[in-house]
Design a protein around this nucleic acid. Structure first.
Length: 619
RNA sequence: GCCGACUUAGCUCAGCUGGUUAGAGCGUCAGUUUUGUAAACUGAAUGUCCGGGGUUCGAAUCCCCGAGUCGGCUCCA
């Protein structure tokens, strides 16, 4: 089964797109139709009603009309018209978008924007006809250009719900007029539809923007601006712990931390090519003396200058720099949202400067770190080899031969490691070289691009980076870039939703909460002593709640804050010196209540869990 | 950037077609209570109704401009 469903549900969804279009045609006779394909879980139709903005308030009306059509059980009648007759139909029924599609069908043999060069879309006017006829489907008095297949009648389409209306450029080109895209979801049964809607509710509960506020991780300020998240103490702890995981693994294999300023003179990016190529996304600064600077949109050009600060021997290589630091990109306002897309991006960046002969080992080492990290956070990975697009040579630096060579090198490294179990994506390379991109799958089954390892043969050229080889000659070096989390902001958006805010002990901003059942002086004293010991002796993050509230309330608070361990310290504990930790549900491995345990043993165990970065409790 | 929707207390939201001192629950604060594994009781405070301009006798409500948020599109080194 593919993403848009198997045969039957696919036909149902596609039929619903037609039914929705016929309902809209009935309500707004002037409506012009674009395309109406099946998508994951449903369908959409691109519609343009001159002078009218269809809104979600119109949905009840449209849905009612659709249900009427469904109850009429109209047959879907397939017909084939000669192409000129089809064009006549489009003209007569005032459907300019269909006319354009038919024209493309005739000239190019396809209507799919993805199969056509984007410059050709709708503009091919000459050449031999590649299609002589067009296929149509009719239900009731609504006829649509369509390849099918469809359900038998409008009565056989399962259960649906219109979801939202959104703007969409005609054929995906931002120079084209915008149409209104009406989205619906559809399933064979009422139950499946209800389950889907419930799943959406669940996903909403896990939304990192909501959890970010509820768990007090980050915030935004209108005064600071869009796309500029502000991290609270708790959120900063979470970031720091995740980054520490990555950096410890890097340091083990010889990376060294470096630090660079967040701005640079224009000159650096003129040399690297960023100034002209990414000019739109650069935050530019003019000094009072009129000199031009820019906020860094990436770190590699700065790092090259550290490498280039002295003459390097082949004996010194590989030289491995790491730096977790923010870069700044002037993203379009419409793209910003939560932490997924921001303007101040923290990258866990790393650059290896090495000989070409060392690239393979370096890539494999970095790959190992990526694997270890994602297995640590519980996300399965899929790898994609991102290559350049030979049709768009102008987008890439370097020569054809260089690209061919480095892509072959990278492909060989991949094949030697994992065989052919990977996808190749022409057009997804960086402008300076091909890369390995990693997709992580979250707990809700969604895939996100996360880590990246890049083979850069262009910046060493641009910045003339060399080492002295065994014979005393200058040798051009290569660079390998790697970000494990990619952007910490985007990774946290994913990770918060992946865990639902239930972070493992090692990453949790608060690891243990100690509550007292009352405010008895001796009890409070003991609780304070335990908290202090946990912090000072074991380096744990502990909060103490001795407020004047019921134990039940305090436990509820702790649960809602998703604190891994809760310990009630009262008269019993005062007497026995034992505690009975409450383990967060997702971390429990044993059924039932935990056994009383000595305070020291408990703290020791938790500290070990934090250190070994396990996600389950050993208590 | 483009299309559309939304913006009322810290949070979630109510406030019909313009009509006195703008509400609820949760949270907060205070007092009472001194509590044993998911919400004690009582009371109180809290608003630039996103900002600015306009229409009107009168605007949270209508119109315009701007900001922000959300859903998409385009983009994403």
């Amino acid at each position: 089964m593919n993403k848009t469903g198997d045969g039957q549900i696919h036909a149902m969804r596609h039929s619903l797109a037609h039914i929705m279009a016929s309902a809209v045609a009935k309500l707004w006779p002037k409506a012009r139709f674009g395309v109406g394909p099946v998508v994951e879980n449903g369908f959409y139709y691109d519609i343009d009603v001159p002078g009218v903005a269809i809104s979600e308030e119109d949905f009840p009306k449209i849905e009612a009309e659709m249900r009427k059509i469904i109850s009429e059980k109209q047959s879907f009648v397939h017909s084939v018209k000669p192409i000129d007759e089809a064009l006549g139909w489009a003209k007569a029924s005032r459907q300019p978008y269909k006319e354009e599609l038919l024209n493309d069908l005739m000239r190019a043999g396809t209507t799919l924007a993805s199969d056509l060069n984007s410059d050709e879309l709708g503009t091919i006017t000459s050449g031999e006809a590649k299609a002589s006829e067009a296929s149509f489907y009719t239900n009731g008095d609504f006829t649509d250009l369509c390849r099918g297949p469809h359900a038998k009648t409008t009565g056989d389409v399962g259960e649906f719900k219109l979801m939202r209306v959104a703007g969409a450029y005609w054929r995906g080109k931002d120079t084209n007029p915008q149409m209104q895209r009406l989205y619906g979801v559809a399933f064979e049964t009422k139950k499946e539809l209800a389950e889907h809607l419930l799943m959406l509710e669940e996903a909403k509960k896990r939304d990192h923007r909501t959890l970010g506020r509820d768990l007090d991780l980050f915030t935004f300020s209108e005064l600071v601006g869009q796309g500029l998240p502000l991290w609270t103490p708790r959120g900063t702890t979470l970031r720091t712990e995740l980054d520490r995981f990555v950096q410890e693994m890097r340091d083990e294999v010889g990376f060294m931390a470096v630090t660079v300023p967040h701005i640079t003179k224009k000159d650096l990016y003129e040399k690297s090519g960023h100034w002209s190529k990414f000019s739109d996304e650069l935050f530019k600064i003019k000094t009072r003396e009129g000199h031009e600077f820019a906020m860094k949109p990436m770190n590699c050009p700065h790092h090259t200058q550290i490498y280039d600060s002295k003459q390097r021997s082949y004996r010194d290589l590989p030289i491995r720099y790491r730096e977790t630091t923010m870069v700044y990109r002037d993203e379009q306002t419409g793209e910003l949202g939560g932490l997924s897309r921001v303007r101040a991006i923290t990258q866990d960046d790393a650059h290896v400067f090495c000989r070409y002969s060392q690239v393979e080992t370096e890539v494999l080492t970095l790959w190992g770190i990526v694997e270890k990290f994602y297995s640590g956070v519980g996300m399965p990975l899929r790898m994609r080899l991102s290559l350049h697009d030979p049709a768009k040579r102008a987008d890439y630096m370097g020569t054809d031969k260089q690209w061919k060579d480095v892509e072959a090198t990278l492909r060989k490294i991949v094949q030697d490691k994992i065989g052919n179990d990977f996808e190749e994506a022409p057009g997804d390379a960086a402008f300076y070289g091909p890369k390995l991109d990693f997709m992580g799958k979250d707990a809700l089954g969604r895939e996100h691009q996360v880590a990246t390892i890049q083979f850069d043969f262009n910046q060493p050229e641009g910045f003339d980076l060399t080492c002295i080889d065994e014979n005393g000659a200058q040798e051009r070096i290569a660079m390998v870039h790697c970000a494990v989390m990619g952007s910490i902001e985007r990774f946290l958006a994913i990770y918060i939703e992946h865990t639902g805010g239930r972070f493992p002990v090692w990453a949790a901003p608060e690891q243990i909460r100690i509550v007292t059942p009352n405010q008895d002086e001796k009890v409070v004293e003991l609780a304070q002593k335990i908290a202090e010991e946990a912090r000072e002796k074991y380096g744990l993050r502990v909060e103490l709640d001795t407020s004047n509230e019921s134990v039940g309330k305090k436990i509820r608070e702790s649960e809602m804050q998703k604190v891994p361990y809760l310990v009630v310290v009262g008269a019993k504990e005062l007497e026995s010196g034992l505690v009975m930790p409450r383990v967060r549900a997702d971390m429990r491995v044993k059924e039932g209540n935990v056994e009383p345990i000595k305070v020291d043993n408990f703290l020791h165990t938790v500290a070990n869990e934090a250190k070994s970065r396990v996600s389950k409790s050993s208590i």
